[in-house]
């Protein structure tokens, strides 16, 4: 996987990290076209594009479609329902611990300034 620098940055600095932590869990995704997608999250990239397996798509009319594999474009996502058992903060911290952080973000200089004064 050749992730760009920007993608890695998003993966490490935005809440996308939580979606990445949800890999191999069954999730529900609501899209902006009012569809509900249920499936197992196989992969989530740094932008939040999702790959689901064994997915069921229910559109706004109630029509359903089952597919073995489904890619959801990040920008079409409205909500992701997380499994009940998940503690989001713990999941994020565990994900951070897992991923090798090459560029450890430094505290922004403005905060350092505030502390000194």
């Amino acid at each position: 996987m050749a992730a760009s620098g920007q993608e890695k940055f998003y993966a490490q600095n935005t809440l996308v990290v939580l979606l990445i932590a949800m890999e191999n869990e069954r999730i529900k995704v609501e899209t902006k076209n009012e569809s509900l997608i249920q499936g197992k999250l196989m992969n989530c990239d740094g932008y939040g594009n999702l790959t689901l397996s064994k997915a069921t798509v229910t559109n706004s009319c109630g029509k359903t479609l089952r597919t073995d594999e489904l890619h959801v474009k990040a920008s079409s996502v409205r909500y992701v329902h997380l499994p009940n058992k998940v503690n989001p903060i713990e999941a994020i911290q565990q994900q951070f611990a897992k991923s090798k952080r090459i560029n450890t973000p430094k505290m922004p200089p403005k905060y350092k300034k505030t502390v000194q004064s």
């Binding site: 939040g48 996502v77 409205r78 329902h81 997380l82 009940n84």
Partner: peptide, 11 residues
């Protein structure tokens, strides 16, 4: 009601 929800920021 939804117990736990990730909301995409663009909305």
């Amino acid at each position: 009601t939804i117990p736990m929800l990730f909301v995409r920021g663009d909305g």
